[in-house]
Computed example of a mutant assay.
Amino acid sequence: MARLFAAGAIFSCALILGHPAAEARDRLLIVGSSTVFPFATAVAETVGGEEMKFPIVESTGSGAGFALFCSGTGENTPDITNASRPMKPDELETCRTNGVTPLEVRIGYDGIVLANSKRGPKFTLTIDQIFLALAEKLPAGKDGRDNSNMSWSDIDPSLPQEKIEVLGPPPTSGTRDAFVELVLEKGCKPAGKMTEEQCTRIRRDGSFVEAGENDDLIVGALEANPVTVGIFGYSFLKKNLDKIQSVGIDGVEPTFENIASGAYPVSRPLFFYVKSEHLGVVPGLETYVAAFTSEAAWGDEGYLAGKGLIPLAVEVRQEQVARISKLMDLNGTRKTQ
């Protein structure tokens, strides 16, 4: 079941979004990216309780979050969706068709990391090696050949003589989309003449396992099996450094400084999208947005940086706040784009 945060409790999305009591709900509904989930819940904990009721935050994955968010307006639809990738043109068209006007807020950056248990071997990989480990097809003739690399040492004798077993996000995840774009597509280019479809297909022979949207479960699985490698956002590595270790990529470790400087090769921007039609209608929406985009939260010394969010440059944050202020009155008066 997907995770939901609301004053420390766990709820079922189906019960909340479909329950008759939701028809007159008085708290925010937030869905989307598992990567942005820890940051969204931190803001919810900060604003909830006194000024407003605790928002409900669900980890659905970026794709599923966009589907829920763009399904329409009203009490039974989310007010905000978190995303670890930008909204796609077809998703924006669905939003518009259903009367939804999304307001995009870029919140910072994240690194996609590979990690394994501290009890396992410490090693680094190149982007090309990751492609050779996880691609369904490798170059050979017109249609390629099935990937026969079963252990890391099959790819390079210097790598561990351990079975390739990688736990990663499902197709609905923005992390999966970004990983395919930033790693598989890039690693495929020098491999030979392969189609885009071949370059982006992940093997399905058991070497890669879709582990759902709960990144905490991946961390637990890595502890249980030291030779397994997991794929998730930097924030989950940061909060579990006592248990897991990073696998460097192209000789660069995924540290806060390396992601912020651009030295780490697998990084991406993070977002949330606000449903403009709910501004001034759902209590607390403007308060939440203002809290998330405050320097106390997303600034260089903000509490979200302490949880692993890589802040935007100060001038970019200022531009974002100015743009958001033009599109909505943070006191609750609706403005149109």
Score class of each variant (00 low, 15 high):
M1R: 01
A2E: 12
A6P: 07
A9K: 09
A9V: 03
I10M: 12
I10L: 09
F11I: 01
A21C: 00
A22H: 08
A22I: 00
R25V: 10
I30N: 09
V31N: 03
V31T: 10
V31I: 05
S33W: 05
S34W: 01
F37Q: 01
F39P: 02
F39A: 02
F39M: 02
A42H: 08
G48R: 01
G49N: 12
E51H: 12
E51G: 14
F54V: 02
I56K: 02
S62W: 03
F66E: 14
F66D: 07
A67C: 03
A67T: 09
A67W: 05
F69N: 03
G74V: 00
G74N: 11
N76M: 05
P78G: 10
S84D: 12
P86D: 14
K88C: 08
C95H: 10
P102C: 02
Y109T: 03
Y109P: 03
V113H: 08
R119I: 03
L125T: 09
L125S: 07
I127V: 14
Q129Y: 09
L138E: 11
P139R: 05
K142A: 15
K142Q: 15
D143R: 04
N147C: 06
S148K: 10
P157Y: 01
S158I: 00
E162N: 09
K163P: 08
I164V: 13
E165I: 02
V166W: 12
G168F: 07
T172H: 04
T172L: 06
S173E: 05
G174T: 04
T175S: 15
A178E: 12
F179D: 02
L182W: 07
V183C: 09
L184H: 12
E185M: 06
C188P: 11
K189Y: 08
G192W: 03
G192A: 05
M194V: 13
E196C: 06
R201T: 13
G212H: 05
N214H: 09
D216S: 07
L217A: 13
L222N: 07
A224D: 15
P226T: 07
V227R: 10
G230Q: 10
F232R: 05
K238N: 14
K238D: 06
D242Q: 12
I244E: 06
I249Q: 12
G251Q: 09
F256Y: 15
E257K: 09
E257Q: 13
N258L: 00
I259K: 06
I259M: 10
S261D: 15
V266N: 10
R268D: 11
P269K: 01
L270D: 14
Y273V: 02
V274Q: 11
V274Y: 11
S276N: 15
S276A: 14
L279H: 13
L285N: 06
T287N: 14
Y303H: 01
G306C: 03
G306E: 15
G308F: 00
L309R: 03
I310W: 11
P311V: 03
R317F: 06
Q318V: 04
A322G: 08
A322H: 04
A322I: 00
K326Y: 07
K326S: 14
L327A: 11
L330H: 04
N331W: 00
T333F: 12
R334E: 14
K335H: 15
T336L: 12
